[in-house]
Structure formats: C-alpha cells, structure tokens
Amino acid sequence: MSRPEDILPPDLFYDDAESRKYTTSSRIRNIQADMTNRALALLDLEHPSLILDLGCGSGLSGEILSDVSAEEGGPHTWVGMDISASMLGQALERDTDGDMLLADIGQGVPFRAGTFDAAISISAIQWLCNAETSDVSPEGRLKRFFDGLYASLKRGGKAVCQFYPKNTQQRNLISQAAIKAGFGAGILEDDPETKNVKYYLVLSVGGGDVTGAVREMENVDVQDARRRERKRGKEVERKGSKAWITRKKAQMEAKGKVVKNSSKYTGRRRRTAF
C-alpha cells in the first residue's frame, strides 16, 4: 500500500478534499478513536489536565479528550498543533473545544517551559522523517521537535505518540531522537507481527523508567533492551587475571585438551628478572 508520507508534504497532501475524506470516513474515525483511547490509558491521567495534541488534524482525538468523564479524571482541556490548514478548517466546522495552532511541529513547540501535563500524537510524527526542502534534515526536525516537547512538558509529564514508521530504521531514528532530547522512552507494539501493528512511543520527562506505564495493563510483555547497570563493588573479570585463567583452563579441559595443573602459583606474576 502506498504511504501518504511518500507522496506529498503534509500541508499539501491534506488539502480540502483529502481532509474531508479523512474526517468523514467512519473506518478512519474508529481506528483513530481506538488509538486515542489506548494512548489515554497509557497516560493514566488522574485529574483534568492540559494536554498538547501534536498533529491534531480535524480534532478527532481532541474530541475524545474533551469527552473523558469526571470519574476517569476528565474532562481534559487540549491545545492542538497541525500543519494542514484544511484539516484545521474541518475542525472549525465540527466546532471542537480545544484551541488550535497552524504550526509545523518540526520547527519546535512554541510554549513556555512546563506548560502541559501530557501530550498525545496520533499518526503524525512519522511525517517528521521527511525533509521537504534541502535546508532541513529529518534528524534536525526530529531534534527541534523533541527538544521543544521536552521543555514544554512539566516534570513527571508523559507523552504518547502513535506513529507509522516506514521501516525499522525510521523507528530507531525516532526513538533515538527522543532519548537524545532527554526523555525516558519505550515503544509499545499492539498486534505485533500482523498487518495492523501499531507503534506507540511512550515518553516520560524526569521519570526515567517508562515500563511503569504498562505495569497495570494486561497482555503486555516488557522487553528491556537497556544495558544492565554494573553492580557496584563487584570486581569485573579482566583478561589475564587469575579468575580468567582458571575459567579458560576449565573451558579447554572440557574440550578435551591437555591443560597444565593449577596450583597456588597459577596466574601469579614472575618476579622481575635481575
């Protein structure tokens, strides 16, 4: 299937006709609603919060944020950013509650530090991997975006970005840009290894560990790829040390090789020759 990202830049691709198609298609609306609810569950907000919606489009996800019931910690207030004027026009027609900005998230996030409790983004940040002009690069745009997002979230704030990476390389590019900006990051995969796989980039500010976001959820396996922290005070086995020599000798013996006997002199240095 063709990817809209490969056809045109987002502000041109989502023209009036395409925006209307996107907003009125019940299939897209259902998928968007599912993904927004999943993102909300990952954010786990307890109070009515101020949420930034990146790539808000026609406000499909924003509507769900405004409709969260009081028992579940809502209703939330949201501010949306999108690059497509036609999409925002659709949102105006549908009379959504949130404020919207016509802005390119690859140019940064123009809010002062610590503004938002949380941020969500549904099917938007893969657009940042395209450089439309020669004076910008995907890496540069991702950096501006994640640096801006990091600053605009309050400490302990979380962001969940659902995105469609083109390949593993793009997926790594995005997650590494987030980590470089200072986020604690993790990727949640829904329906892995199927055609309908959905990727959610879960980010936390100052929290460090994001695995806590899925702790209470069912059917979620955590794969931690981070390097294990070295235990403090424990001697690491160096090449040439006594422990290393005895291990190697045992290995060779197991292979059936002839190995010299071990004694108290094994691995000791000879005294310096005169």
């Binding site: 690059i83 925002l88 105006l92 900005l101 016509l102 802005a103 390119d104 140019q107 123009p110 002009t133």
Partner: peptide
C-alpha cells in the same frame, strides 16, 4: 484568524 494562530515560520526565520 477564526481563533487559529498561524505559527508557521518561513525557513529563513526558523
């Protein structure tokens, strides 16, 4: 305009 602020910057101003 219509409550929506235009924060798009031309590339020389980014």
């Amino acid at each position: 305009k219509e409550g929506i602020a235009n924060f798009l910057l031309p590339s020389h101003m980014v």
